[in-house]
């Protein structure tokens, strides 16, 4: 199995377009996933009874094969980018929800009591105290969800989308390994770069965790 380098040279424009479309699908899904999971996580954190239900439901969604999710969305949104993004969002939910709930749980009760004693209202406490303190755990979830979404986009190749995944179908149908190898390598690179960027974002957003590590 050898790589046909001239094929790569001839298709740089296509490869760039596919990579960008791949990234766009994954990032939209993670952002949507955050928008949906954040309020759900706050509910699951505050209302104990709903917690098991919400986490259990998201776990069951996770067990449905991704290809089936995409196909089942076809009657709703057709062979479009929307189907890809909704399907991916469903997958990011389980990780984002679980980590956000865990992050909120990890905020010390004393800190919340202190905020309350200072007269801070619940919503303000959530935004200015709880969410920032939960950020490291939430970001861990965002990192996992992003890498997962990037790797899963290719499954949408069965419904005619799929970004770099189209290279897999192409190589499979023509019995030609080069596009498949290029697709796998580019997907891994995208995931690595996205993960490194998120680590940097987290580093910038949580200066207090660095001070703690130095023991100050």
């Amino acid at each position: 199995m050898s790589v046909d380098w001239s094929w790569i040279a001839d298709h740089t424009d296509d490869l760039t377009a596919l990579t960008l479309s791949h990234l766009q699908a994954a990032l939209t899904a993670v952002l949507l996933g955050l928008l949906v999971s954040l309020p759900l996580a706050v509910v699951a954190h505050r209302v104990r009874r709903l917690r098991g239900l919400l986490l259990g439901l998201s776990n069951i969604l996770f067990t449905i094969p991704s290809i089936a999710v995409f196909v089942l969305l076809l009657p709703v949104s057709g062979l479009t980018r929307t189907t890809t993004v909704i399907g991916l969002t469903i997958y990011t939910l389980v990780v984002l929800l679980r980590n956000t709930v865990e992050g909120l749980d990890s905020v010390p009760a004393r800190t919340k009591e202190a905020a309350k004693a200072m007269g801070t209202r619940p919503l303000r406490t959530l935004i200015t105290v709880e969410l920032p303190l939960a950020l490291p755990v939430i970001m861990a979830g965002v990192r996992i969800a992003t890498v997962m979404a990037i790797s899963l986009v290719s499954v949408a190749t069965y419904i005619g989308d799929g970004g770099l995944g189209q290279l897999f179908t192409d190589g499979f149908q023509r019995n030609f390994p080069t596009p498949v190898i290029v697709g796998v390598v580019l997907t891994l690179l995208l995931a690595l770069v996205a993960d490194a960027l998120l680590v940097t974002v987290q580093y910038v957003l949580t200066p207090w965790t660095r001070r703690q590590k130095r023991g100050v």
Binding site: M148, I150, S151, S154, V155, L188, A191, L192
Partner: peptide
Amino acid sequence: SSFGRALPTVGLVVLVFLA
């Protein structure tokens, strides 16, 4: 672990299939 999560399963299956 993050490498494993990033590995696209469809791509891997097709690649091993072609090989």
